[in-house]
């Protein structure tokens, strides 16, 4: 009698699991098929602290005026995690630009950790909405720190594929001008370097006004990125810009930055969509 009860209970359990399992398999397969067949490969930008989703307006306008126009979608992540969308993505556009900004855009390591969590949920929502798997990442200033924290602690290569990360004036050692003194954040990032995706090509761009800093970020703090990325990613390239528009807040508008983004990010990514 006891055995029959056990078998009856098992049968019911198997049927319930089968029902839920079937639903999971069909949902997952449909989503995976959409991702697999998706030809959309956006470039996703994150502005630095105190900046809004409009931070890259000049840069994106310049890129669009030089070549094929890309749709621009701006996503503001509210403090409660809600997303506010501005603009839209053209149905035929395979390479839209998406700017993700944060309502709480304050500076500091603790806030970068919070912003990374918001970024992760924003990326998941965007993927669910637009069904893309591959994208290129660009971060200005603290935006590069958010990307770094994301790649080390939240990135899942089964969900996303990111071939390039470009950082503009990103202070990997905050305002420290000496590499002898490493901030807690830099220590954490160096330690987490082993989690970085091995297929990532990293371009770190620094600006200089007087070969010591870009007016805000010490050049040594940008260069500290090598301790995080080198030997863990596919390639790490450090570029130092000087002259006009090399000041920290002008970096996104620097013509050399536009060229680098065109040649190293946008063109290679569009080739991937034509596979």
């Amino acid at each position: 009698m006891k055995n029959r009860i056990i078998l009856g209970f098992s049968l019911i359990l198997i049927i319930i699991l089968g029902f839920y399992g079937q639903y999971w398999v069909s949902q997952t397969s449909t989503n995976q098929a959409k991702l697999q067949n998706s030809r959309m490969t956006p470039v996703i930008f994150i502005p630095g602290s105190s900046a809004t989703v409009n931070r890259f307006d000049n840069l994106l306008t310049t890129i669009n005026s030089n070549g094929p126009a890309h749709s621009i979608l701006k996503v503001l992540v509210k403090k409660n995690g809600d997303l506010v969308y501005q603009g839209n993505i053209n149905a035929t556009d395979r390479q839209p630009f998406i700017v993700i900004g944060f309502e709480n855009n304050k500076d500091g390591y603790d806030n970068i950790k919070k912003q990374t969590q918001w970024l992760t949920s924003a990326l998941d929502s965007l993927q669910e909405r637009y069904h893309f798997k591959t994208f290129a990442a660009v971060g200005h200033s603290n935006g590069g720190l958010i990307w770094t924290n994301y790649f080390e602690n939240y990135y899942d290569s089964d969900s996303f594929n990111v071939p390039t990360l470009t950082t503009l004036g990103t202070p990997f050692n905050f305002s420290e001008s000496s590499l002898q003194h490493r901030t807690e954040m830099l220590k954490d990032f160096v330690q987490g370097g082993k989690n970085l995706p091995s297929n990532l090509s990293m371009y770190s761009i620094a600006g200089t006004e007087d070969y010591t800093d870009d007016g805000i970020v010490p050049i040594q703090s940008v260069i500290a990125g090598k301790y995080i990325y080198q030997k863990h990613v596919k390639s790490y390239t450090q570029t130092i810009l000087s002259g006009d528009n090399a000041q920290h807040s002008s970096l996104p508008d620097n013509p050399e930055v536009v060229k680098i983004l065109q040649s190293k990010v946008i063109v290679p990514l569009s080739r991937m969509t034509q596979r």
Binding site: I14, L17, G18, G21, Q22, W24, V25, T28, S29
Partner: peptide, 17 residues
């Protein structure tokens, strides 16, 4: 060919996947 959720009994695999 399909992937089933982790922990699903193998006895259901042929039916689900």
């Amino acid at each position: 060919v399909f992937i089933t959720p982790s922990g699903m009994p193998n006895v259901l695999l042929p039916t689900l996947a």
